[in-house]
Amino acid sequence: MPNTQPVVDSPDWVAWLQKPERGAVVNVFPVAAATKASKGAVLTDYRALQRAGAVAVTDDGKPILGDDIMRDALRLGAELSFPIIQHAEDTRATEHCSMNEGATSFRLGLRGMKASAEASIVERDVSLAQQFNGARLHVAHLSTSDALKAVRRAKRNKTRVTCEVTPHHFALSDSDITGYDTNFKMNPPLRSASDREALLVALADGTVDAIATDHAPHASHEKEVEFERAAFGVTGLETALGIAISKLHREQRVPLSRIIELFTAGPARVLDLRGRGTLVRGSHADVTIFDPKKRWTFEAARSRSKSRNTPFDGWQLTGKAIATIVGGRIAFRAD
């Protein structure tokens, strides 16, 4: 994701991210900025970014609000079969907001983001995408029931709209925020219980294409502050599989095969990653070995991340990755 300093908005930065000298033990698929410096005004050079190895473009936390620039992005994306990823938030309507609008935000005295601030952007983007044959829109970390409805409509109309959902959005809702714990502050925010229900249904029925973590580590000094001043974002990589198996498979009876698809073939389809997310002969040897029955307790203090900003500290989970093989090499092995 290009929400970095500097913004990854040039082919040079995209190439740099993939350099072997950087020693990544996992595959790196860069997503470049959709507009220069993610300012939402001038499109970046999609053709050059794609040639340099970018798999999609997005302005992530600074969503593209202007209709004209979003239309241009989708049109160009259609020509190149290049996905435009949108963090759907009408930021004009969410200023000073730190959580979802509802009973909990009212009780805590916090300004809340309306669900419509997400849904209105998804609806707008879907209708723009429908104007161009082959346009590809991917809705990042979708969190509301109304936004799901727009994605469902688009899929029925055979528009190439895809979406992802995070483990924290399908495992938690805004009423889980107690004591102004900033480890429950992220954007999009934890939504209402009925939004969460809608996500669970959509994960099971195929409306959702992928589970994505929106992993966002933060230093403690960015989080141990007033809730309204705290950075948005939580970690999620280590807990994703355990949360998915515990919540989706064991509680909701979603078949394991569907959960595997949401972590593998689904995201590979979203980004057109050929020969990935599958075990058929001739594919890349990217394999995660996991034990779907392994019970374990996640402790933030023992996390492999340098950051501790997780809402799942102390959670008992079922399902754990045992080893990860990337390109035929063992990249991770559980203790």
């Binding site: 805590l108 005295g109 102004y180 007033e226 809730f227 001043r229």
Partner: peptide
């Protein structure tokens, strides 16, 4: 304090 929850943060 102008921010909701600031005293709770201090108390923790």
């Amino acid at each position: 304090h102008p921010n909701a929850g600031a005293p709770a943060l201090m108390a923790r």
